[in-house]
Simulated scan of single mutants.
Amino acid sequence: MHLTDSHAHVYSEQFKPDQEAMLLRALEAGVRTIYMPNIDHTSIDALLETEARHPQQCQAMMGLHPCSVGKHFERQLYEVEDWLGRRPFAAVGECGIDLYWDQSHLPEQQEALRIQLAMARQHRLPVVLHTRNAFRQTADLVTAAQDGTLRGVFHCFSGTLAEAEEVIRLGFKLGIGGVATFKNGGLDQVLPHVGLEHLLLETDCPYLAPAPHRGKRNEPAYLPLVAHRVAELLGKDVEEVAEATTRTTQELFGQGDGVTGNK
Results as ranks from 00 to 15, higher is better:
residue 188 D to Y: 04
residue 106 L to A: 04
residue 171 G to L: 05
residue 144 A to W: 11
residue 248 T to S: 08
residue 111 E to H: 14
residue 179 V to N: 09
residue 159 G to F: 12
residue 41 H to C: 08
residue 153 V to H: 07
residue 169 R to Q: 14
residue 261 G to E: 04
residue 15 F to W: 09
residue 140 D to S: 07
residue 5 D to L: 03
residue 189 Q to W: 13
residue 256 G to P: 04
residue 209 A to P: 08
residue 13 E to L: 08
residue 94 E to K: 09
residue 7 H to P: 13
residue 225 L to T: 12
residue 45 D to H: 10
residue 258 G to C: 11
residue 161 L to S: 05
residue 171 G to N: 07
residue 104 S to N: 13
residue 128 V to F: 05
residue 123 H to Q: 14
residue 60 A to I: 02
residue 167 V to R: 01
residue 108 E to W: 05
residue 21 A to W: 07
residue 107 P to C: 13
residue 140 D to Y: 02
residue 88 P to W: 09
residue 101 W to A: 14
residue 180 A to W: 00
residue 39 I to G: 04
residue 46 A to K: 07
residue 239 E to P: 00
residue 115 I to D: 04
residue 63 G to W: 02
residue 142 V to C: 11
residue 18 D to N: 12
residue 78 Y to P: 00
residue 18 D to E: 12
residue 59 Q to V: 12
residue 132 R to V: 12
residue 156 C to H: 09
residue 191 L to V: 10
residue 245 T to L: 10
residue 111 E to T: 14
residue 196 L to P: 03
residue 47 L to F: 01
residue 4 T to Q: 03
residue 204 D to E: 13
residue 42 T to E: 11
residue 86 R to P: 01
residue 261 G to P: 04
residue 185 G to W: 07
residue 250 Q to D: 03
residue 127 V to D: 04
residue 160 T to K: 04
residue 181 T to G: 06
residue 239 E to G: 02
residue 199 L to K: 10
residue 170 L to D: 02
residue 220 P to E: 02
residue 155 H to C: 13
residue 208 L to K: 01
residue 91 A to V: 03
residue 88 P to M: 12
residue 86 R to C: 07
residue 26 A to Y: 04
residue 94 E to S: 12
residue 59 Q to H: 11
residue 72 H to P: 00
residue 78 Y to F: 13
residue 188 D to C: 06
residue 207 Y to F: 14
residue 1 M to I: 10
residue 239 E to F: 09
residue 167 V to L: 01
residue 90 A to Q: 00
residue 238 V to F: 05
residue 46 A to S: 09
residue 192 P to V: 06
residue 90 A to Y: 00
residue 73 F to T: 01
residue 1 M to T: 06
residue 221 A to Y: 06
residue 170 L to F: 10
residue 172 F to K: 12
residue 248 T to P: 00
residue 29 A to E: 10
residue 255 Q to A: 08
residue 111 E to Q: 15
residue 176 I to M: 02
residue 155 H to Q: 13
residue 230 V to I: 06
residue 111 E to I: 09
residue 237 D to E: 13
residue 199 L to Q: 11
residue 14 Q to N: 12
residue 82 D to K: 10
residue 200 L to H: 15
residue 178 G to I: 08
residue 152 G to I: 05
residue 184 N to Q: 15
residue 199 L to N: 06
residue 107 P to A: 10
residue 90 A to G: 06
residue 214 R to G: 01
residue 187 L to C: 12
residue 90 A to V: 01
residue 106 L to E: 04
residue 125 L to T: 01
residue 29 A to K: 08
residue 79 E to V: 15
residue 213 H to D: 10
residue 72 H to Q: 11
residue 86 R to W: 03
residue 102 D to F: 05
residue 133 N to F: 13
residue 22 M to S: 14
residue 170 L to T: 06
residue 231 A to I: 05
residue 29 A to H: 08
residue 70 G to S: 11
residue 76 Q to F: 01
residue 123 H to W: 15
residue 82 D to V: 02
residue 85 G to H: 13
residue 251 E to G: 06
residue 67 C to A: 14
residue 125 L to V: 07
residue 33 T to S: 06
residue 217 R to A: 02
residue 236 K to F: 02
residue 191 L to P: 08
residue 196 L to E: 07
residue 136 R to Y: 08
residue 91 A to G: 05
residue 253 F to P: 06
residue 56 Q to G: 15
residue 183 K to Q: 15
residue 203 T to S: 12
residue 238 V to M: 08
